[in-house]
């Protein structure tokens, strides 16, 4: 593992004067896929948005040694690729144009006039998200799963060193859940910090190198899946027991019953 790239040090986020995320510290190296899990209302989305610099936060937040607050808007946009929940597109734009908007932080403001480098980045993102056959289709006419892949490709087209995805597999069938997380894992292996918010503990255990467990705004566990999703944290934080299998390197966790 290389040196930490993204470092949060005592990060707190208040929304409407209510502290939603409190005193969260962790560091992430390039090359790792991190799952951010926690019960509903734990503050996962808020933390993710704060990491992306979309919400003001207190405490230290640095990327590559530089303070996130000091980054210019465009530099910040090139550093953090962010995929929100829901990811709605409001107009029936062609899929390719939506994906091309991921190049906006790189100065590609018009999808009809992309530089060669930007056009190639768009094609790459479309290829990995398996969207080439849909390139000219209006995005609003696609199925929910197809829309998710368009949103994912749009985010990957940014080709940012930090990827923050909020429930990227929530509306996908099992095939694409596995495909998408595999894809994010490859993005991590290629040198990005990838943080994925998910409720699917099984997928988190399957794909994440590390799991951060958030409960009531506080980081209560930070470690490999086997440890962070161990019987203790599952009972305390999620109020469930799980069927467990696999190995220490590749744990299998199937949520089984409520405590």
């Amino acid at each position: 593992m290389s040196a930490p790239y993204l470092v949060a040090d005592g990060l707190s986020v208040a929304v409407d004067r209510r502290e939603v995320v409190a005193d969260v510290s962790f560091s992430a190296s390039r090359g790792s896929l991190i799952a951010l899990v926690g019960p509903n209302g734990a503050g996962k989305t808020t933390l993710l948005r704060a990491l992306a610099g979309l919400l003001p936060s207190r405490g230290g937040l640095t990327v590559g040694g530089a303070s996130v607050a000091a980054l210019g808007a465009r530099e910040k946009a090139r550093t953090f690729a962010y995929l929100p929940q829901g990811h709605l597109v409001h107009w029936p734009l062609p899929v390719r144009d939506v994906v091309a908007l991921g190049r906006y932080p790189h100065g590609a403001v018009d999808p009809a006039r992309l530089s060669r480098a930007d056009a190639e980045a768009v094609e790459r993102a479309m290829r990995v998200a398996d969207l080439e056959p849909l390139a000219e289709r209006p995005v609003t006419a696609l199925s929910g799963g197809e829309k998710s892949r368009v949103a994912l490709a749009r985010m990957l087209a940014v080709e940012a060193p930090v990827v923050l995805a909020d429930e990227p597999v929530a509306s996908l069938d099992p095939y694409y859940q596995i495909e998408v997380l595999g894809l994010l894992q490859r993005a991590a292996r290629a040198g990005a910090v990838v943080i994925v918010v998910t409720h699917d503990l099984g997928l988190a255990a399957r794909f994440a190198d590390r799991v951060l467990v958030l409960a009531a705004g506080r980081l209560v566990m930070d470690g490999p899946p086997e440890e962070a999703l161990g019987p203790g944290p599952l009972a305390d934080v999620f109020r469930i027991t799980a069927f467990r299998g696999g190995t220490a390197d590749q744990p299998v966790i199937v949520p089984w019953s409520a405590v």
Partner: peptide, 8 residues
């Protein structure tokens, strides 16, 4: 870009 929603 705003077609993608304010947050994106």
């Amino acid at each position: 870009v705003l077609s993608l929603g304010e947050e994106t």
